[in-house]
Amino acid sequence: MSGVGPQSDSFEALAMPLFDQLYNFAHWLTRNREEAEDLVQETYTKALKGFSSFQLGTNFRAWMYRILRNTFLTSRTGLKVTMTVPLEPEEDGPELAIEHDTPETILLERSNRDLLQGALDELPVYFREILVLCEVEEMSYQEIAETLSIPIGTVMSRLSRARKTLRDRLQPQSQKGSAAIAKGTNRAL
């Protein structure tokens, strides 16, 4: 065994498979490579120290994400974000689906990933993080609630508003793109 303790072995086995996902999430939060690396490094250090308090059988992934997010919120960038972003109202109900000519369909037609990445990047951090957790990490509402330490009802309403905000922000860009394409087509004709 050469002094290798079982607990940290287990920690490594559980935590390292999450490394890429946690880094991606950290980068979406900080929007900066160096800060994302610092955040991930600190998360792993804290998690290893606190691993003895982790209860086996509970959600390890949500536990790691919660540590990362709490670490971010107490970092200089995180504090700046939470101090400059206004508190969001939670009382909005779920919005209705859009009937036609949606940004989604326009988006699909052009396969414009850059447009979507840009729009995601510009979202407030509390919208950005919940969309990444839900759509990219495919977390359940329960896992998201555990990670963000909010009730499931808030997860649902915040997700709904995040999606609506993203669509609203894509709409003008999509229309701009459509106009450019139409202009190009007319010129070609």
């Binding site: 890429d20 979406w28 490579r33 991930v40 859009i98 759509e135 993203l166």
Partner: peptide
């Protein structure tokens, strides 16, 4: 069904766009 399709496309778009940063 059309709205569901549009939203699924948006979900897939976010999923693809969100897997952006690798260590």
């Amino acid at each position: 069904a059309a709205d569901a399709l549009a939203r699924v496309q948006m979900k897939r778009g976010i999923q693809a766009a969100g897997k952006r940063f690798a260590p």
